[in-house]
Amino acid sequence: MTGHQLLFWVFAAVTCGGAIAVVLTQNVVRMAFWLIVSLGASAGLFFLLNADFVGTAQLLVYVGGTLVLLVFGVMLTASGPFSKMQTRPGELFLAGVVAILLLGLLGSSVCSVEWDRVIAATNSGHQITNQQSLNHGFNRPEEGNTGHPLGMAFLGMRPDRDLVAGNKTLSTGYLLPFEIASVHLLVVLIGAAYLARAKRRVHPNEL
């Protein structure tokens, strides 16, 4: 068993275990804890998949930002300490059956494809050689050093596609989606602040 495999099994087990614990836990704060465990471990999977920037963004934006917000929301809306909202056993059973069916469907469709042949067919002439790139002491772009190529892609340039020998075309980048996302974030900022602004609180006897 190589190091990569060992790490994959550890991270995959923690990711799946955390996700299943989120489903099975009834206490909403513990759900948040298991969600953090699951998403943090999936950041580890991203690092294994040579996507350092995505893994780090996952840790910073998802785990460090979004989930803190979620926990904050849990605390603000919990009626009592450690509040529980029970799911009825019948619902849970039905959900379990549906989950097993869905997982079987997805799993069988994943396993029925011969990925090696698909990859070999699409990758022809695109194999990255190790001697090609200069090693600057940290990992090469194919090994997770993707910060600069990703930045260029967001600026609308694709040196990773265009600077290949024999390539005569120019690829498009992601400048427009990037701008749209930034405007979208601004709209969300204002909208969320508007929705959550302090309003008159309803007293329990008025309900």
């Binding site: 990711t15 799946c16 996700a19 299943i20 489903v23 799911t87 849970l92 959900a95 997805l106 994943v110």
Partner: peptide, 14 residues
């Protein structure tokens, strides 16, 4: 796939 299914079940039952 496991994460996806867990999420769907979570959305449906919580």
């Amino acid at each position: 796939a496991v994460l996806f299914v867990a999420g769907v079940v979570c959305m449906a039952t919580k």
